[in-house]
Design a protein around this nucleic acid. Sequence first.
DNA 1: AAAAATTACTAACACAGGTTGGTGAGCGCT
DNA 2: AGCGCTCACCAACCTGTGTTAGTAATTTTT
Lengths: 249, 249
Amino acid sequence: MNNPLLRKLANFTELSAEEKNAVDECCGDARYFSAGEDVISQGDRTGGVKLLLEGFACRYKMLEDGRRQVVAYFVPGDLCDLRVFILKRMDHSIGAVGASKVATISPDNVLRLTNTYPALTRALWWSTLVEEAIAREWIVNVGQRNALERMAHLFCELLYRFRAVGLNEGMSCTLPLTQVELAETLGLSAVHVNRTLQALRKRKLITLENGTLTIENLEELKAVSFFNPDYLHLDYSNEKPQSAEREGN
Amino acid sequence: MNNPLLRKLANFTELSAEEKNAVDECCGDARYFSAGEDVISQGDRTGGVKLLLEGFACRYKMLEDGRRQVVAYFVPGDLCDLRVFILKRMDHSIGAVGASKVATISPDNVLRLTNTYPALTRALWWSTLVEEAIAREWIVNVGQRNALERMAHLFCELLYRFRAVGLNEGMSCTLPLTQVELAETLGLSAVHVNRTLQALRKRKLITLENGTLTIENLEELKAVSFFNPDYLHLDYSNEKPQSAEREGN
DNA sequence: AAAAATTACTAACACAGGTTGGTGAGCGCT
DNA sequence: AGCGCTCACCAACCTGTGTTAGTAATTTTT
């Protein structure tokens, strides 16, 4: 089964074959979006829940004067809030950052799944709680950390998240971000993003080229950014660090 | 019925007397916390859901080097994430800012309520979605806005939220925040908070003294901070601005 | 009622990060 | 081949905000 949502949920619990099938069937009709295209725009009526199957996407808000802030990234397997359809209109947009494949799960299907499978429901709630925790950590990031720390922290987070769905290659992952987009994510100017990237490269912490991020020294990158992965709640069985390439921390 | 949670949910839907009673009964045993005291601390095992009944509280995270960031405020009627008990440990703390009264609703009661009353369940989901939307707006706030805009935006938000539970007196509300706490909320230094407060006072936009915030010119305060209340989703019946002292935009 | 903390507030200086105005490489058009 | 566009990158200068080091007024503790 290579549904990235199932790979993600496996970080929290084990699901039965029946549950996995039920999820898979809901991801049937998917649409492709090209880089820069909006999946949903601010002000749209809220429809079904979106699931990113392939690619890289973001959630962003615009200020009236044109400033833009990215408030979340989606890696494959990420759902965009399970219950949005309760609200009337989107107060922000979802945009494809790289070319992406997105499935839409209808409200009916969400209700059917959550009414039928308690273990699956718990796993889905876990994923929304993680999403909220990430948002909080981003507030800390822009509020307290300086440019270098912020960027280092973001890269740590993204590596962990790609790894959680098996989309890393060792310490590398595909990350089709421009420096302007990074700036709009970190609350910096594009020029300063450039300076900061160079500082990270000079310190042999990362490389970022051709849409690929490689972390050269994860321990050091975590240390300079005060990165503590607890907020990702990837601790499968009672409070142990996740499996795969398990780390200190 | 003067349960602040019910007053808040009334912004989204009308609940039956039975549903209101069911909620009320779950708020029975409450505890008092004094200013500065932690309601829950980072690392604690997650227990029941907390409901702020009176006072003012915050959610905050600490960095290892002592920096602190407030990532949310709670006004009476606010629940602290409906489903936290799915996670094992708190990745942040909840602290009383002013003296506060907090009820604890057990996981069992949450499950019972949501399994029994669909309309109530929808209203509770609405409140968690609003909480998430506020977190996102805070990312925008610290990421894109300068000191004056940030502070103005926060004060607008708080007035709207106090008003939604009937805890305003016209353009005033009780806000027992020190300048240091404001600094830790807005990602500024305490000194700059002081400067910015004075700028807001000089421009006749607000006063803040003795723990009371008064907004002297809401329209202007909204304008300087690009405040758009849509993200609070207080639109009761189809897309109309809320009642009470209804405003433009 | 004295002592100790906490809080609001001020001034002078320092610096992180923003702004402006560039260059050149790469890439998809026609 | 040439045009337009995007992107990474660079240098010089400017400014918003942080830092440090205070004073004075309140509040809390003893």
